[in-house]
Amino acid sequence: MRGSTAPKPPSSDDEGFKKQLVTLIPHLRAFARTLTGDATAADDLAQDALMKAWDARASYQMGTNMKAWTFMILRNQFYSEKRRSWRQSQLDQEAAERTLVAVDDPEAPVALDELRQALDALPAEQREALILVGAGGFAYEEAAEICQCAVGTVKSRVSRARKSLLGILESGGYARDGRAAGDAMRSILADADRLSGPLRT
């Protein structure tokens, strides 16, 4: 009787956990998309992370930051898969390039594409720090928890990322299809006004 590892019967804790987990799915997808740069690979990653989070629910402490906890799981999953599929990096690169070309929002201005390419040019740890703090809305402390590093490290990564990103966008120092340097920053500036309205609500 004791020997069999029968799964726990569903408890009310599990139900609460699951409800909260469901609300985090869109955010996990977004984070995965920025890590992989490929929509399909991102959803695979996010689903793996979702399963991992569910299986690890016993180790989650209710009342602590579940979003940061799931992001950490997703990130760990991403890096462990990346190590495994080291040889596939060439394929991944091709997939990333396809994604960069295929922007499915018909309204998407060039700037979105330019920003993605510029982000791609950053070192991975700078990119993720900037995404977490600058796009995901995490505090430095939370981002440090997710990346399992010191708060000061996150701060300096974000600051370096911001600096390089601006430099890249201004110089056009990345693969581009024949657009004049400086266009990227111009279109981003032009978009900022259009976008800042709905986003600030």
Binding site: A30, T34, D105, A111, L112, L115, R116, L130, I131, G134, A135, G136, G137, R162, L165, L166, L169, M185, I188, L189, D191, A192, L195, S196, L199
Partner: peptide, 12 residues
């Protein structure tokens, strides 16, 4: 402006 763009990319 870059920050706005970045958040928009994620929010999308």
């Amino acid at each position: 402006a870059i920050g706005v763009r970045l958040r928009h990319m994620f929010e999308e």
